[in-house]
Computed example of a mutant assay.
Amino acid sequence: MRVMVLIKADKDSEAGVMPSEQLLTEMGQYNEELVKAGIMLAGEGLHPSSKGARVRFEGKQRSVIDGPFAETKELLAGFWLWQVRSMEEAIEWVKRCPNPMGVSSEVEIRPVFESEDFGAEFTPELREQEERLREQIAARH
């Protein structure tokens, strides 16, 4: 199963404070463990919301809201995409993670939808399209 591991932002990450050399070193070592274990598919840190935007959908209308966004506890500072056997395995890996914000922080784990999760609505034609797109993405990298 694939899971998205979401690192929650804090006031420092939202202010653009960069991680310490020690934390970067610890995270680098942790990422090496994830790669060697065949867990990590992707992972990146995110710039503060002040450099971002949101697009709000209201029916057919679209409106753009420029950052920063007020509710820090709902914002993300980074993510990993992992391939694990179970949610329990993902939880155990997160427990081994260096504390991403140093003091108080939160990491969220969410399963990624797989083709079989969508049922009959995900027709053979849609499945074929999805597979073709994944192949095109892989070929670019």
Rank of each mutant, 00 (worst) to 15 (best):
103 V>Q: 14
4 M>D: 05
70 A>S: 12
11 K>Q: 13
56 R>W: 09
8 K>Y: 09
59 G>R: 00
130 E>L: 12
82 W>H: 01
112 V>A: 10
88 E>L: 10
129 Q>N: 15
136 Q>K: 15
5 V>F: 06
74 E>R: 04
99 N>R: 09
13 S>F: 07
136 Q>T: 14
141 H>F: 14
19 P>L: 03
45 G>Q: 02
59 G>D: 06
25 T>K: 14
90 A>W: 01
100 P>Q: 00
90 A>V: 00
104 S>N: 13
1 M>R: 11
72 T>A: 08
100 P>G: 06
23 L>H: 13
40 M>D: 02
120 A>T: 08
130 E>F: 15
27 M>P: 08
19 P>V: 02
54 R>V: 05
94 V>Q: 01
98 P>C: 03
97 C>W: 07
42 A>F: 10
26 E>R: 11
19 P>F: 08
44 E>I: 04
114 E>T: 13
85 R>E: 15
137 I>H: 12
117 D>K: 04
132 R>L: 14
87 M>G: 11
89 E>S: 02
10 D>V: 08
53 A>M: 15
55 V>R: 01
85 R>S: 15
59 G>V: 00
112 V>M: 08
76 L>D: 05
89 E>R: 03
80 W>L: 06
72 T>V: 15
91 I>S: 01
71 E>I: 07
136 Q>I: 10
124 P>C: 03
67 G>M: 04
89 E>G: 03
133 L>M: 13
104 S>Y: 11
97 C>P: 09
139 A>C: 11
83 Q>A: 06
78 G>C: 02
20 S>Y: 09
92 E>I: 09
128 E>S: 14
21 E>M: 13
29 Q>S: 13
57 F>M: 14
30 Y>E: 00
57 F>L: 14
11 K>V: 11
9 A>Y: 02
112 V>P: 06
67 G>R: 00
84 V>W: 00
2 R>E: 08
50 S>I: 10
93 W>Y: 06
123 T>F: 10
37 A>D: 01
104 S>V: 14
63 S>F: 06
76 L>I: 01
109 I>Q: 00
78 G>K: 05
103 V>G: 10
14 E>K: 02
7 I>A: 05
14 E>N: 06
17 V>F: 07
125 E>I: 08
58 E>K: 14
12 D>C: 13
73 K>P: 13
26 E>V: 09
18 M>D: 08
138 A>N: 10
120 A>G: 09
135 E>G: 09
115 S>M: 14
99 N>Q: 12
94 V>K: 01
128 E>R: 15
141 H>D: 10
101 M>Q: 15
36 K>C: 00
83 Q>E: 01
67 G>T: 00
